[in-house]
């Protein structure tokens, strides 16, 4: 069977052609669900559409199956965005559990982390993994914080800034909630999502006390120019519509010894990220020498995300 997409390079026309092509597939096979949802990518070839439909859970696939899946993911990204992405599958490293600490005294509310994260992780324009909340100096009550502050200049007198993202809880209520085990904790402590297994019930979002999970209500509006081609299977690869995603501590970077994009982007040095099992790491120094606190500790979620202030 000839793939109609090979004949043109215009992504818009290609998309329409694919949609029409897929509708033909659906009529021929009676698999209406495939056409309507367009596989995971809004358009696909017949064999890829079938492979999408029957794709196994990440943890159940053999090495060879994962390789084939990765090739398919790369092929689909090429077709949709015209970009050669690389989907890495580096496993968690031995003796590593990641943790994060934020120096609240140093955060000045610039939101550089928010935007660096969005670029690095191929976020749709309606999604941000990091949220910086503008708080009154005299309060720790999140309900009176401003999530959408928009000033000419920050910081504003009388305010402090509280960045929040997925806390990578050691006892994550979201993982417990998922009816199909599409989300789990990796050996390096990162809570990840298999975007191709999630059924989009959003029960994990209901369970999360930190509002750290985000749903793809429509198809992510990524552009070819803005796409970061260096991706990880459990991280920043382009996501399909109708599934949940979240911060994964930049798994595509951190498993290769790099810092997360938000840490690198922070101009004030408020962000400290590292290996909790390494006694010489900066994060361990902070935990041992600073008066640290965690958000909603009373819920027993055991976040691996701390806050502290300069004394």
């Amino acid at each position: 069977m000839k793939n109609p997409d090979d004949q043109n390079d215009d992504p818009a026309i290609g998309d329409m052609a694919r949609r029409r092509f897929l509708q033909g597939v659906a009529l021929a096979t009676g698999a209406g669900a495939l056409a309507v949802n367009g596989g995971a990518w809004g358009g696909s070839t017949l064999s890829d559409a079938f492979a999408d439909f029957f794709q196994q859970h990440y943890q159940r696939m053999t090495e060879a199956e994962i390789r084939a899946t990765i090739e398919r993911i790369e092929r689909k990204a090429k077709r949709r965005y015209g970009v050669d992405i690389r989907v890495d599958n580096t496993p968690a490293q031995e003796g590593v559990i990641f943790g994060y600490a934020i120096n609240v005294s140093k955060c000045r509310g610039y939101r550089d982390c928010v935007h660096a994260c969005a670029r690095e992780n191929n976020l749709s324009s309606d999604t941000q993994y990091i949220r910086v909340i503008e708080m009154d100096r005299d309060s720790t009550d999140l309900r009176h914080g401003d999530h959408y502050y928009d000033h000419e200049q920050v910081p504003v007198e009388g305010k402090y800034y509280l960045p929040m993202q997925c806390m990578q809880c050691d006892n994550p209520p979201c993982v417990k909630a998922c009816p199909v085990e599409a989300t789990w904790t990796e050996p390096d402590g990162i809570v990840v999502v298999d975007y191709d297994w999630c059924i989009g019930c959003r029960y994990c979002m209901t369970a999360c006390p930190y509002q750290a999970r985000h749903f793809n209500w429509g198809h992510p509006d990524l552009t070819s120019a803005g796409l970061n081609p260096d991706t990880h299977y459990l991280g920043n690869r382009p996501r399909p519509r109708g599934v949940v995603e979240k911060c994964h501590f930049c798994v595509q970077r951190t498993r290769k010894g790099r810092q997360p994009a938000c840490q690198e982007a922070c101009p004030t040095g408020a962000r400290i990220f590292g290996n909790l099992l390494d006694p010489d790491s900066e994060i361990r120094y902070v935990l041992e020498h600073k008066a640290v606190f965690r958000l909603k500790e009373d819920l027993g979620t055991e976040p691996k995300f701390w806050y502290f202030r300069d004394e």
Binding site: A33, L34, V36, N37, F53, H57, R60, K176, A177, C178, P179, V180, E181, A182, W197, C198, I199, G200, C201, R202, Y203, F215, N216, P240, R241, G242, V243, V244
Partner: peptide, 23 residues
């Protein structure tokens, strides 16, 4: 969000988070 993946909910064929998940 993904009704096409309903089969993930079928015990044994899919991956059913029982008894952990209330869903």
């Amino acid at each position: 969000g993904r009704p096409d993946r309903f089969w993930h909910l079928i015990p044994f064929i899919g991956r059913f988070n029982f008894p952990e998940s209330m869903l």
